[in-house]
Simulated assay, not measured.
Amino acid sequence: MSAAQMTLLALVGVISGAANAIAGGGSLIVFPALLAVGLPPLDANVTNSIAQWPSYFGATVGQRADLQGQAARLRLVVPLAAAGAFTGAVLLLVLSSAVFDTVVPVLVLAASALMALQPRITHWTGDPQPGDPDRTVALGLSVFVATLYGGYFGGALGIIMMALLAVTANDTLRRLNAVKVALSMVAATAALAVFALGAPVHWGWVAVIGPATLVGGYAGAKIAQRMHAAVLRWSVVVLGVAVGAYLVVT
């Protein structure tokens, strides 16, 4: 582990943490960097998943004010997020990744389109306002499926999660972004419990990247709190399209 490699991955970690807080997809910034320093794909995937946890913690702390008044929603989705991510992490260790290699770009691009169309979808469903009841069944199912994917791969989980929350939960995008990072932290915690026991985690790289993602996550959360809803929405869309295109060509 050279000084240049440590500096590169620390810098990448800060950028990744900020991206996770603002739009999602930060793990896809760290993943290729870990491959570049010589880690095999499975090792890079699980090491990346654990190294991202501090970014979600930092972002959750940074946006904790936006979680106020959402206790009922969180009571529904937190257990589902934990169950989904735990299941996905177990599947990663026992199944081939070939299927997910094929569907991940499709999922990311579809989520980006869903986010772009969110205002129109809201209009089609009767223009519900913040504070109106959520689509509870759709919300719970969406969170479970998203975190199942997140436990398995994790790349662009925030983009997918944000898009699904935007069309199943009736609240401002700023408050839903806070839910997104909190659920990402729950999912990362569940996956960590699996990977720490049975996966090839490179803890030295986690020690370098993790603190950097914490700093980036907290800073990104503060930026997200000041962003207009339209800017936040299109940040998710643009990053999602870029990530989806990257996954298609790699």
Score class of each variant (00 low, 15 high):
1 M>T: 09
3 A>V: 15
5 Q>P: 03
7 T>N: 05
8 L>I: 13
8 L>E: 13
14 V>W: 07
15 I>E: 02
16 S>E: 04
17 G>T: 03
19 A>E: 01
24 G>H: 01
29 I>G: 04
31 F>D: 04
31 F>P: 00
34 L>W: 01
36 A>G: 11
36 A>P: 04
37 V>E: 09
38 G>M: 10
40 P>N: 10
41 P>L: 08
42 L>V: 14
43 D>P: 06
49 S>Y: 00
49 S>K: 07
58 G>I: 01
72 A>K: 15
73 R>L: 15
75 R>K: 14
75 R>G: 09
83 A>E: 02
86 F>R: 08
86 F>P: 03
87 T>E: 11
92 L>Y: 03
94 V>S: 07
99 V>I: 11
102 T>C: 04
103 V>F: 12
104 V>L: 13
105 P>K: 06
112 S>D: 03
116 A>K: 02
124 W>I: 01
125 T>S: 09
135 R>H: 13
136 T>N: 08
139 L>I: 12
147 T>E: 10
151 G>I: 03
152 Y>K: 09
156 A>C: 11
158 G>V: 02
159 I>Y: 02
159 I>G: 01
159 I>N: 03
162 M>S: 14
162 M>L: 15
170 N>C: 14
174 R>I: 12
176 L>M: 14
176 L>R: 01
179 V>C: 12
185 M>R: 05
190 A>T: 14
191 A>N: 10
192 L>N: 06
193 A>K: 11
195 F>S: 09
208 V>Q: 04
209 I>W: 00
212 A>I: 11
219 A>Q: 03
221 A>D: 00
224 A>S: 12
226 R>I: 06
226 R>E: 07
233 R>P: 04
235 S>N: 12
237 V>L: 05
237 V>A: 02
240 G>W: 06
241 V>S: 05
241 V>W: 10
245 A>S: 09
